[in-house]
Design a protein around this nucleic acid. Sequence first.
DNA 1: ATAAAGGCCACCC
DNA 2: GGGTGGCCTTTAT
Length: 165
Amino acid sequence: MRELPPLSEPCFGFYATPFGECCMAFSNDGICALTFPEDRDRGWADLQSRFPGVDFKRNDTKVAAYVRQIFGKGKRPVVHPIGTDFQLSVWEALQNIPAGKTTTYAQIADVIGRPKAVRAVGTAIGANPIVYLIPCHRVIRTDGSLGGYRWGLECKKAMLAYEKR
DNA sequence: ATAAAGGCCACCC
DNA sequence: GGGTGGCCTTTAT
Protein backbone atom coordinates (compact mmCIF):
# COMPACT_ATOMS: atom_id res chain seq x y z
CA MET A 1 0.00 0.00 0.00
CA ARG A 2 1.28 3.44 -0.80
CA GLU A 3 1.86 5.99 1.91
CA LEU A 4 -1.36 7.29 3.35
CA PRO A 5 -2.22 10.98 3.19
CA PRO A 6 -3.12 12.63 6.49
CA LEU A 7 -6.68 11.97 7.56
CA SER A 8 -8.38 14.94 9.18
CA GLU A 9 -11.09 14.10 11.71
CA PRO A 10 -11.15 10.43 10.78
CA CYS A 11 -14.34 8.68 11.80
CA PHE A 12 -16.28 5.53 11.00
CA GLY A 13 -19.46 3.72 11.86
CA PHE A 14 -22.05 1.12 10.96
CA TYR A 15 -25.56 1.47 9.59
CA ALA A 16 -28.25 -0.58 7.86
CA THR A 17 -28.64 -0.49 4.07
CA PRO A 18 -30.68 -2.45 1.52
CA PHE A 19 -27.75 -4.89 1.39
CA GLY A 20 -27.19 -5.41 5.09
CA GLU A 21 -25.27 -3.31 7.56
CA CYS A 22 -22.39 -1.37 6.07
CA CYS A 23 -19.15 -0.13 7.56
CA MET A 24 -18.24 3.36 6.40
CA ALA A 25 -15.25 5.60 7.10
CA PHE A 26 -14.37 9.22 6.31
CA SER A 27 -11.26 11.23 5.71
CA ASN A 28 -11.15 14.94 4.92
CA ASP A 29 -14.95 14.99 4.93
CA GLY A 30 -15.17 12.44 2.15
CA ILE A 31 -15.78 8.71 2.13
CA CYS A 32 -12.59 6.66 2.24
CA ALA A 33 -14.19 3.27 2.91
CA LEU A 34 -17.53 1.56 2.40
CA THR A 35 -17.77 -2.18 3.01
CA PHE A 36 -20.31 -4.86 3.87
CA PRO A 37 -18.59 -7.07 6.45
CA GLU A 38 -20.20 -10.12 7.99
CA ASP A 39 -19.87 -8.55 11.41
CA ARG A 40 -18.54 -5.37 13.01
CA ASP A 41 -15.30 -6.94 14.15
CA ARG A 42 -14.41 -7.78 10.59
CA GLY A 43 -15.41 -4.33 9.43
CA TRP A 44 -13.11 -2.76 11.96
CA ALA A 45 -10.28 -5.19 11.16
CA ASP A 46 -10.57 -4.37 7.46
CA LEU A 47 -10.42 -0.67 8.23
CA GLN A 48 -7.32 -1.15 10.39
CA SER A 49 -5.54 -3.05 7.64
CA ARG A 50 -6.35 -0.37 5.09
CA PHE A 51 -5.43 2.54 7.36
CA PRO A 52 -2.90 1.25 9.87
CA GLY A 53 -2.72 3.29 13.05
CA VAL A 54 -5.47 5.74 12.16
CA ASP A 55 -7.61 6.63 15.15
CA PHE A 56 -11.13 6.62 13.71
CA LYS A 57 -13.82 8.02 16.01
CA ARG A 58 -17.10 6.14 16.07
CA ASN A 59 -19.92 8.16 14.50
CA ASP A 60 -22.90 6.09 13.38
CA THR A 61 -25.02 9.21 13.01
CA LYS A 62 -22.81 10.54 10.26
CA VAL A 63 -22.85 7.15 8.56
CA ALA A 64 -26.66 7.12 8.77
CA ALA A 65 -26.84 10.47 7.02
CA TYR A 66 -24.63 9.27 4.20
CA VAL A 67 -26.56 6.02 3.87
CA ARG A 68 -29.73 8.04 3.33
CA GLN A 69 -27.94 10.17 0.76
CA ILE A 70 -26.50 7.20 -1.10
CA PHE A 71 -29.47 4.85 -1.07
CA GLY A 72 -32.17 7.52 -1.06
CA LYS A 73 -32.63 10.29 -3.57
CA GLY A 74 -29.56 12.23 -2.47
CA LYS A 75 -26.69 13.24 -4.69
CA ARG A 76 -23.69 10.99 -5.01
CA PRO A 77 -21.15 11.87 -2.34
CA VAL A 78 -17.50 12.46 -3.18
CA VAL A 79 -15.31 9.40 -2.85
CA HIS A 80 -11.67 9.42 -1.75
CA PRO A 81 -10.19 6.04 -2.60
CA ILE A 82 -6.59 5.52 -1.54
CA GLY A 83 -4.39 3.01 -3.34
CA THR A 84 -1.57 2.43 -5.80
CA ASP A 85 -1.61 4.03 -9.26
CA PHE A 86 -2.68 0.74 -10.78
CA GLN A 87 -5.52 0.31 -8.30
CA LEU A 88 -6.70 3.89 -8.79
CA SER A 89 -6.83 3.43 -12.57
CA VAL A 90 -8.92 0.29 -12.14
CA TRP A 91 -11.28 1.91 -9.62
CA GLU A 92 -11.59 4.92 -11.92
CA ALA A 93 -12.63 2.69 -14.80
CA LEU A 94 -15.27 1.03 -12.65
CA GLN A 95 -17.03 4.34 -12.16
CA ASN A 96 -17.80 4.56 -15.87
CA ILE A 97 -19.96 1.44 -15.86
CA PRO A 98 -23.59 2.59 -15.96
CA ALA A 99 -26.04 1.29 -13.34
CA GLY A 100 -27.88 -1.79 -14.52
CA LYS A 101 -25.05 -2.74 -16.86
CA THR A 102 -22.20 -5.18 -16.40
CA THR A 103 -18.74 -5.50 -17.88
CA THR A 104 -15.94 -8.05 -17.53
CA TYR A 105 -12.57 -8.15 -15.83
CA ALA A 106 -10.96 -8.45 -19.27
CA GLN A 107 -12.78 -5.37 -20.57
CA ILE A 108 -11.61 -3.32 -17.61
CA ALA A 109 -8.06 -4.48 -18.34
CA ASP A 110 -8.48 -3.23 -21.92
CA VAL A 111 -9.93 0.12 -20.84
CA ILE A 112 -6.97 0.92 -18.62
CA GLY A 113 -4.57 -0.06 -21.38
CA ARG A 114 -3.27 -3.19 -19.66
CA PRO A 115 -4.95 -6.01 -21.59
CA LYS A 116 -2.61 -8.65 -20.17
CA ALA A 117 -3.15 -7.66 -16.56
CA VAL A 118 -6.55 -9.31 -16.21
CA ARG A 119 -5.54 -11.28 -13.16
CA ALA A 120 -4.19 -8.19 -11.46
CA VAL A 121 -7.37 -6.30 -12.35
CA GLY A 122 -9.34 -8.92 -10.45
CA THR A 123 -7.06 -8.48 -7.47
CA ALA A 124 -7.36 -4.69 -7.60
CA ILE A 125 -11.13 -4.87 -7.86
CA GLY A 126 -11.15 -7.14 -4.84
CA ALA A 127 -9.31 -4.41 -2.97
CA ASN A 128 -11.93 -1.76 -3.82
CA PRO A 129 -12.26 0.31 -0.64
CA ILE A 130 -15.58 1.97 -1.48
CA VAL A 131 -17.95 -0.68 -2.74
CA TYR A 132 -21.28 0.20 -4.37
CA LEU A 133 -20.22 3.80 -5.06
CA ILE A 134 -17.27 2.35 -6.94
CA PRO A 135 -19.36 -0.36 -8.56
CA CYS A 136 -17.16 -3.41 -8.51
CA HIS A 137 -20.33 -5.54 -8.37
CA ARG A 138 -20.94 -4.74 -12.05
CA VAL A 139 -17.88 -6.71 -13.14
CA ILE A 140 -18.38 -10.37 -14.07
CA ARG A 141 -16.37 -13.03 -15.83
CA THR A 142 -15.92 -13.23 -19.58
CA ASP A 143 -17.76 -16.58 -19.65
CA GLY A 144 -20.82 -14.92 -18.12
CA SER A 145 -20.45 -16.39 -14.64
CA LEU A 146 -20.61 -14.06 -11.70
CA GLY A 147 -17.00 -14.10 -10.57
CA GLY A 148 -16.15 -13.30 -6.97
CA TYR A 149 -17.03 -10.66 -4.44
CA ARG A 150 -15.03 -9.69 -1.41
CA TRP A 151 -18.10 -9.23 0.81
CA GLY A 152 -20.00 -12.32 -0.33
CA LEU A 153 -21.60 -13.32 -3.61
CA GLU A 154 -25.08 -12.86 -2.15
CA CYS A 155 -24.28 -9.19 -1.72
CA LYS A 156 -23.11 -8.92 -5.35
CA LYS A 157 -26.25 -10.65 -6.57
CA ALA A 158 -28.46 -8.39 -4.48
CA MET A 159 -26.81 -5.24 -5.84
CA LEU A 160 -27.16 -6.39 -9.44
CA ALA A 161 -30.80 -7.33 -8.92
CA TYR A 162 -31.43 -3.98 -7.24
CA GLU A 163 -30.11 -2.14 -10.29
CA LYS A 164 -31.80 -4.29 -12.89
CA ARG A 165 -34.37 -2.34 -14.92
C1' DA B 1 15.16 -9.84 -3.67
C1' DT B 2 12.04 -13.37 -3.86
C1' DA B 3 7.92 -16.06 -2.93
C1' DA B 4 3.04 -16.68 -2.57
C1' DA B 5 -1.43 -15.41 -3.21
C1' DG B 6 -5.18 -13.66 -5.66
C1' DG B 7 -12.94 -11.57 -7.38
C1' DC B 8 -9.02 -14.05 -14.34
C1' DC B 9 -8.66 -16.17 -19.00
C1' DA B 10 -7.89 -19.48 -22.77
C1' DC B 11 -7.56 -24.02 -23.49
C1' DC B 12 -8.04 -28.77 -22.70
C1' DC B 13 -10.77 -32.91 -21.09
C1' DG C 1 -18.65 -29.30 -14.89
C1' DG C 2 -13.35 -29.65 -13.72
C1' DG C 3 -7.98 -28.93 -14.09
C1' DT C 4 -3.48 -26.47 -16.01
C1' DG C 5 -0.44 -22.89 -17.37
C1' DG C 6 0.28 -18.18 -18.07
C1' DC C 7 -0.31 -13.47 -16.79
C1' DC C 8 0.36 -9.21 -13.57
C1' DT C 9 0.17 -6.66 -9.03
C1' DT C 10 0.54 -6.61 -4.12
C1' DT C 11 2.06 -8.16 0.26
C1' DA C 12 4.79 -10.73 3.20
C1' DT C 13 9.02 -12.89 3.97
